[in-house]
Amino acid sequence: MSQQMQARILFNEQVGPDVFRMVVEAPEIAKEVKSGQFFHVRCGAEYDPLLRRPISIHQYRSKTGELFFLYQVKGKGTALLSQMRPGEYVDLMGPLGNGFSLKKGNGLYVLVGGGIGIAPLLSVAQDIKKQGFEIVTLLGAQSRSHVYVEDDFRLYSDQIFIWTVDGSSGLKGLVTHMLPEVIRTCNINQILTCGPHGMLKEVAQQAMAANIPCQVSLEEKMGCGVGACLSCACSIKVPEDSAFTYKKVCVDGPVFEAEEVIWDEE
């Protein structure tokens, strides 16, 4: 069950121009977490910034009780988080959200990550590898300097392809360019993806067109993280007589099946 705790920081290191990896000690929680879940992190003790920041689980190690977070400094909150030092304590609420659920089959898994959206996919890659399945990983970034934790992904991926928008590392273009070929040539159990909305939409549409199960991890501005404030609504296909038009990214997600999301809404 989700709880609020003070977790001791073991590492908080910069791995990209604006990306950090934080490792905390949370032995009880590390046993319970699921890939794709997130923690709601308080980045400072003051009232500005006021709200917590949802940060997904990048890796967890049940044996050592460690939780890894990979986060991008985007504003005041994450900037404060990046200044925290090993030995200090960080206020966490979680684990929250549903997490990925792997669809069984005799094929392989395709991971598609863009930008900081690659964060939760490493944890899934570990899960998949533990079960002995093959993984094809496609990672997209703006440029060479924005390609980080690539080696960690190589550990678990049978094939990995890096795409950069400017071509400064790996292949040039958007990561989704490669997906049609992967879909055509591989026997795929499931596609798991996280990244910018446009990328998710493209991945989801390709997967749906090919009838391949696909789970997407969505992001939305959040308040409470527990389903109380209804800030993080996402449009979902629901029966007409349903009492709900939206689902909550925090508790109903952040992971959704590609086909339940309404992609075309502005």
Partner: peptide, 13 residues
Amino acid sequence: KPKAGNKVPRIAE
């Protein structure tokens, strides 16, 4: 009756 609510973003710090 059920109410759908507004479009996102619904929150700003």
